[in-house]
Every structure is written in structure tokens, then in C-alpha cells.
Design a protein around this nucleic acid. Structure first.
Lengths: 205, 205
DNA sequence: ATAATATGTTGACAGTGAAAACATTGCGTG
DNA sequence: CACGCAATGTTTTCACTGTCAACATATTAT
């Protein structure tokens, strides 16, 4: 029977859980190791038994978040598996919607080294289709949809790399802008605009 | 005759200058008020006589940076003033190239509240053409090029808002991705890819 | 010249990430 | 079962950060 006041039981996963909670409640800037530790009812330095440093914890949190993300992209990927273009467009929209709902993930993702780590640790994960929903590269689904479309479309004249940059860039850029609507020059339902944009022929005819 | 050890003379502008230097040398994470103050040979709290807080100084630094940015966009804007499509494409490329060379500005820009401030303080600046190069909204040039193209093109079927989201989103997204090339799945000269992409008919035919 | 103001300094405080030294628990091996 | 070692948690401490209050000095206006 474990002493309730010392060994915690499953601190590692609870740190991640409380980290996500804190991120959602206080936002990107409000996340600190000490707060997370306190939320778990544990000393300030306890997290260091489970994570090398703050960025390591952040990466673990993101890993969790990217699971949601992968699922959000996976749904349209399956639904429109038969039509590569429709699939790609639907995935793009899901990408935008996800970060629109979770703006802090976007900031976190590009200020941590999660993606670098994933790229070096498991280059495979990005290219293999099987592991997307686990620990693989969160953008693999997107990447495969792009490859799929490139292979299927007779209209497309872009190289695979161009196409990836085009699709990912557009979708990511819109996501960034939408999480900063106050930075945009006029008001409006930008999410709706983004939707009609992706569905139009201007993007992938 | 000013005492050399007390009143500094022109601390405010030197703080900005040293701030930019620090940003370029140590990167986004390495910027702190205290370091900037020390670089100016002044006490830690001296900056508070000229700036309300850190974000205020950061905004001033960005203001300076955005001047460069505006000029980088202004050059192709003038060069291709006669051909709205070419102009828009050239501006887009300049946008990408600028942040590709100054990746830290990109991070800073979207983690400060500069754009919000500009939008509330001078909504006009974004819409008027005359003040771009001074204190106006740094994206006004881009915006005007979009409007220009929308008005001139008979091919374009998008609304002005759609078009802005499309162009700005694409260009911004690519800029973000290029400043994180290590996050991309394969290696290559992404800047060159981006260039050929913008020039292709896939983007604004 | 003197008062008001602008500008700079000192010292302090709370919050942060991190390391070192120490304490407690639980597990594996004899 | 007992013992020792590894895992996990705590305390203490450090350097660094942004910011404030109180004080000092210079500049400017009256």
C-alpha cells in the first residue's frame, strides 16, 4: 500500500495532464514547471525525475496534443480516402479548425523542438503510414495526402516538394492568421472564408 | 556639457539599437531587458524611463524592424507597379525572403502585440497608402497589392477577403515553414522551391 | 536662482528554470 | 525474509528574469 504523501503513483502522466489543463486555462505564457508541479501537489523539482527539463515536458504535452491533432486529421482522411483532392481539402480544413480551436498548441509547437526531435529520432515515422496515430510525426497524414493527390491528379503540374510547401504553407499560414484575427485588417468570419477558400478551385483545381 | 556618467543623451534609440543587435546575435530567447540595459552601459531599470515595460520596448524594436520589412516589400511593389499579378507575386517572394533572412522577427512579431496596437491605434494606416514606410501597418503594402490584383484581374473569382487570406496565408505559412526547415520532412533548397511555386500558375493564374 | 521635471541608480521582491545534496519508498536478489 | 540498490520526491540554493519604490542627479522653465 503506497504512502499517499510520498511516491505519487503516476506522476509522469499527471504532470502532462495538468500541463495541458494549465495551458488551456492560463494560455501559453502562463505555463511554468512550478505551477504544473504545484497543481500535482508535488515539490517544484519533482518533475525533473521524469523530464530532463522544461522543454522535455512541453514536448510530452505536445505529443499528447498531437494525438488529438492526428485524429482530427485522420477523420477526413478516412472519409474521403476515395477522392484524393477532396481528401486533401478536407484535411486542410481540419488542420485549420484544429488550431483555431487550440491556438496555444500552435505557438507551443513552433517554439519547442518537438518536430526536430521527431524528424531526427524517427524519420521513418513521417514516411510510414502505419504509425500516425501513435508517436509518429503529426504531419505525416497531411504529407501522405499530398503525395496521394500528386500521384492521382493529372491537372497538377507541381513537384511533390512544391505541392507540399504549397498546401502545408497555405493551410498553416491561414491557421496562424486565424489564431490572430485581431491582427487582421477587417472583421468577419474568417473561418468561413477559409472554408470557402479551400473548397474553391483557386486552391487545387 | 553633459556629465558622461549620468544622463545618457539618447538612451531611447540606443536601447532599440542594442535590442536589435542582441536579437540578431543571441536570438529570440536571448533577449532580456537587463542585457539590453547592460549593453547600453546603464542600470537595469533605466529602460523603464523610456518604455512602459518589456513588451513596449519589443514593440519599438519591431517597429524599427518593420521599417526594413516595408522597404523590402516596397521595392518590388514599385518595380512591378504596372502589372498587378507580377507585383503581388514579387511582393510575396520578398515577404518570404525577408523572414527567411530574419527568422527572429517572425517569432517576435507574432508573440508581441504590435499588430494589435497598430490596428487599434491607426486603422487608417492599414488602408492608406501614403504612410507605409513610416509608422503605418507593415502589411499595408501587401494588402494593397492584393486589392490591386483583385480589381485588375478578370480571372480571379475570389472575394477580396478570400484573396487576402489566400495570399497572406500562403506566403506567411511558407515563411514560417522556411524558418523551421529542420522541421520539414526532406532536405532541399526550399527557398528556391518557394520561388518557383510563387511564379507558377498554380498560385494566381 | 530656484522649482519642477526628466532621467538614471540602488535595492528589493516574486517568479522562473535548474542543479546538488539529502530523504523516503519500493523492488529485486541473496 | 532481510538487505541493498534504484527510483522517486524534497529542501536548499543559485542565477536570471520583469517590475516596483525610493532615492539621486541633471536639465529645463519660470
Amino acid at each position: 500500500m503506497p504512502n499517499q504523501n510520498y511516491h505519487h503513483g503516476d506522476l509522469k502522466t499527471e504532470l502532462i495532464k495538468e500541463g495541458i489543463k494549465l495551458l488551456n486555462s492560463e494560455g501559453y505564457e502562463g505555463v511554468s514547471l512550478r505551477k504544473i508541479a504545484k497543481a500535482c501537489g508535488v515539490s517544484q523539482t519533482a518533475p525533473y525525475r521524469h523530464f530532463k527539463n522544461k522543454d522535455d515536458l512541453i514536448n510530452a504535452i505536445l505529443m499528447e496534443a498531437m494525438q488529438d491533432f492526428s485524429q482530427s486529421l485522420g477523420k477526413p482522411a478516412e472519409e474521403y480516402a476515395a477522392d484524393p483532392q477532396k481528401q486533401l481539402k478536407a484535411i486542410g480544413l481540419a488542420y485549420i479548425e484544429f488550431f483555431s480551436k487550440n491556438p496555444d498548441y500552435l505557438k507551443l509547437l513552433f517554439s519547442s523542438d518537438l518536430l526536430d526531435k521527431l524528424n531526427t529520432e524517427s524519420q521513418l515515422a513521417f514516411h510510414s503510414k502505419s504509425r500516425h496515430f501513435e508517436t509518429g510525426h503529426p504531419f505525416a497524414i497531411f504529407y501522405h495526402a499530398v503525395k496521394n493527390y500528386a500521384a492521382s491528379s493529372s491537372e497538377n503540374t507541381m513537384s511533390e516538394q512544391e505541392l507540399l510547401l504549397y498546401c502545408w504553407g497555405l493551410v498553416h499560414g491561414i491557421a496562424v492568421l486565424l489564431t490572430n484575427t485581431s491582427k487582421l485588417p477587417f472583421e468577419g468570419d474568417y473561418l468561413a472564408i477559409a472554408k470557402s477558400l479551400l473548397e474553391s478551385e483557386e486552391f487545387l483545381r
